[in-house]
Design a protein around this nucleic acid. Structure first.
Lengths: 199, 199
DNA sequence: AACGCTGAATGAACGCTGTTCAATTGCACT
DNA sequence: AGTGCAATTGAACAGCGTTCATTCAGCGTT
């Protein structure tokens, strides 16, 4: 059969991404193949390659969605009151939003890093989504630093730290850390770092 | 041909690991296949499976060697004088040893994390090598904390942070951090964290 | 010297992967 | 009804990890 015209290009795209997310959540990054995605949406591999440049592109699209979810989650965790205690905000971001998401959706979060992107530069739209997430951390930090540039620098450092802790958690190596929970670790990191920052 | 007996089992093992390291350094984790390793040492795939349980096992062995190299490098960066300034020691460990290694051998270091190990527990010998590396950080921190348990907890947190920064660096996303160099970032992290710790 | 045993080494085979593209075929239009 | 277009196919390619029946070099025995 050909020319079914049952779904628009965008519909198929959405179906494919939905299916891919389901598969990745169930079987992890390694178990996510083009043929499985195609079968799940009732099309064939060839069709997928009309919608996505290649496997890496598919992954990147999913990661884009993940970043959106992450942003939404972090945003709701940011207290509306801008005058709120920055430390409290940052700890809330790390614990109740970021780490909670990582634990709930670890295969998805993992995929953000497992796809190594073979040295190719990240596309503009993806960088934008990344920066939007970092931006929330930046905003929370803003009252504690001199200017925006400084906020960006510090936010990246601090969040790289939180990511490192999450990686440790996901790779189930928290036993190396004396069985601490990721939340405690992030708490300690943020607390001490901020003391140093404001000293 | 069969039964060449040109090399002992251990010799072939060593040859295979050497070749695999060379391939991984040149083509990255993705380009490292059993067939390539076999061809590089003049044997066939089947032989490799007499020496390694599976692909993951081969990677794990290489990672073991990487951890050894990392340990050696970190150790020479530790000043002999135990009374030395802990902050200086930690910054030396991070900058001149860890980050320098990561930059020089980024495909190898990356492999420590790219191989996800499919939820299987790490073997004892590997855990030991890991702990040995963390131990150096722990030792440097020891003068600043109450007891060994605390040193372990803090070392893991701080080093997770350094790893996060290295990940950012390797994934070429330091532009997100306003173009900071990894060394500066680690410096800032360690400095501020230690201020908080000793406050 | 000839034999058989043993185990080191092979390499074909299996089912999977990403990726491509000539061929097919349903739909819209004349 | 016929024609052209383009959406969709699915076979093909090269490569992957993994297995295992088969082969055969070298040794000990006769």
């Amino acid at each position: 059969m050909a020319r079914r015209n049952e779904h628009s290009r965008d519909e198929i795209r959405r179906m494919a991404l939905d299916a891919a997310e389901r598969i990745a959540a169930a079987e992890g990054y390694g178990g996510l193949s083009a043929r499985k995605v195609a079968a799940a949406i009732g099309y064939t591999v060839g069709t997928l390659y009309l919608l996505f440049e290649n496997h890496g592109d598919l992954i990147l699209q999913i990661n884009g969605r993940t970043l959106d979810e992450l942003y939404a989650r972090l945003e709701t965790a940011t207290p509306p009151d801008e005058q709120c205690n920055p430390e409290k905000t940052l700890r809330a971001l790390a614990q109740h939003a970021y780490i909670a998401y990582v634990e709930a959706e670890s295969p998805r979060w993992n995929m953000l890093f497992e796809h190594v992107a073979g040295r190719a530069t990240l596309p503009e739209w993806y960088r934008h989504k990344l920066e939007r997430v970092f931006g929330l951390v930046e905003a929370a930090l803003r009252p504690l630093v001199q200017n925006d540039t400084e906020a960006c620098r510090i936010a990246c450092i601090l969040w790289a730290g939180v990511q490192g802790i999450c990686t440790l958690k996901i790779r189930q190596r928290t036993d190396l850390a004396g069985g601490q929970r990721a939340e405690e670790m992030a708490d300690t990191l943020i607390k001490n770092f901020l003391i140093g920052l404001t000293a």
